[in-house]
Design a protein around this nucleic acid. Structure first.
Lengths: 254, 254
DNA sequence: CGAGTGAACTTGTCCAGACAAGCGGCTCCA
DNA sequence: TGGAGCCGCTTGTCTGGACAAGTTCACTCG
């Protein structure tokens, strides 16, 4: 109820698109009609439409009503960090087996990524992640001590829940993340823990999560067995001048 | 000169950020100052700032001036399609060796992706792509006949220029693309053409490019040798309510 | 029957003003 | 000295209006 008007309008329209009430290809009501329906001025309606446009849900040109482009939604921030959140939203059953949770001095590479002195204590976590009981990914995660210490304190069980959900609940300021994708062959550790042979191609996602003031908080290295999980992104040519192309990221099971 | 005012303001501010005139962390001028500087109303200035915010260049909260977040720009639409455009922008020297350019009936898989009947003629292209003379990627590309025929007509040399640049110049309506990343081991063909051994891990990018009315135009399968090219994406938690997280994609050499 | 004109409708752009909400620094008081 | 409250600046939200530019469609004219 306290939400701004334009947010409520865009939420309402988004629901109509996601529910199939407005099918892809169908035109939206004109701005004038929306003004009448919600009892607002045109500027407010246009702010709501701009949100949908940035999300890639609608496409529309001058002179014509905007048209529904797609009903797949870009995934929320948390989904790209949290294996658990993502799997649950995809209707799969996530699980994990914790191999180790350790506090140790940062190696040169980790220290460089986290922008701390080499040898500074960090908290490292190594887990095998499963989907419906089947191993799909090996997660190596290093946290700066300030945040990592929370993983040792009561309330968090590494074999139980989602780290990110726990940390976001503890009001840790996770604001941005950069993900880099490439391919590697399984090393000895990967092979042993994922029960595959050395050299098997793996999709690697390296991740650096930062606080809102850009301090690095976590460096992660996740290696996915191919054929179980894919990363998809959409991009579109800019529509109106000065507008930037819109992007959406989807992490999918296959 | 014919550009809208808000586009000119956002372009001017973007240039100041990219040139380093406004360094990351520095606050932008207040909206009132920008109004005075450009002689416009506040709504116009806010439209310009919204563009920068959607691009992830600035971050800013209520009560405070927006702050420069980053000076890396999301890549334009064409860069994610065209190897040539991307390489040139990255300051590298792209090249290619065309293995075959053929018109043949669509296989079941290609027909399914391009949404045509199996056996419908399509145009298929197989090229080894190089960066500074070094092979980095094997490109398999299948075009619907309507577009692919242009590759046979005069004016296009598959050993010379960029397909996408040529087709966009020919006013082909390439509007959106969906990219899916995973890892595969090199098959016999990959191994022979890229001069690597069978089973070497490769980063695979499958791509479906569509026209603005969503008809598929091209299905591509690009396989990158690891360590030469990576795909990076940034995501951020939404700042203001109702706003969606912003995303940026970077394809990088390493 | 076809081509061209024009009106109605749509979105894009821009303006001027108003109030609410958040932030930061200041003063004043205990 | 330290804290509370106030004030000014900033952005967020919303209104109502105006004109420009693009699309669609029906009508008219040749």
């Amino acid at each position: 109820m306290a939400d701004p008007l334009h947010a409520r309008i865009s939420a309402e329209l988004r629901d109509r698109i996601l529910s199939g009430d407005l099918a892809p290809g169908a035109p939206l009501p004109s701005e004038a009609q929306l003004c009448a329906e919600f009892g607002t001025s045109r500027g407010t309606v246009r702010a709501a439409l701009a949100t949908l446009r940035a999300a890639g849900l609608i496409r529309g040109g001058q002179g014509k009503s905007p048209v529904v482009r797609d009903k797949t939604l870009s995934q929320p921030f948390e989904n790209l960090l949290s294996f658990t959140s993502w799997a649950e939203r995809a209707g799969r059953s996530p699980g994990q087996r914790t191999v180790e949770l350790a506090r140790r001095p940062a190696s040169a590479r980790i220290a460089h990524q986290l922008e701390v002195e080499e040898g500074t204590p960090v908290v490292e976590l190594l887990r095998v992640r499963t989907l419906d009981g089947e191993a799909v990914m090996l997660e190596r995660s290093s946290w700066v001590l300030e945040v990592g210490r929370l993983l040792f304190e009561g309330g968090f069980d590494p074999d139980e829940g989602s780290i990110y959900r726990y940390l976001l609940g503890a009001e840790v300021d996770l604001a941005t993340a950069r993900h880099t994708m490439d391919a590697v062959g399984a090393d000895d550790l990967d092979a042993r823990l994922l029960d595959i042979s050395v050299g098997t191609p793996l999709l690697r996602e390296r991740r650096l999560a930062r606080a809102s003031d850009d301090r690095p908080l976590e460096y992660g290295d996740d290696r996915y067995i191919p054929g179980r999980v894919t990363f998809t992104f959409d991009n579109a040519r800019p529509t109106t001048a000065g507008q930037l192309p819109n992007l959406r990221i989807l992490k999918e099971t296959s």
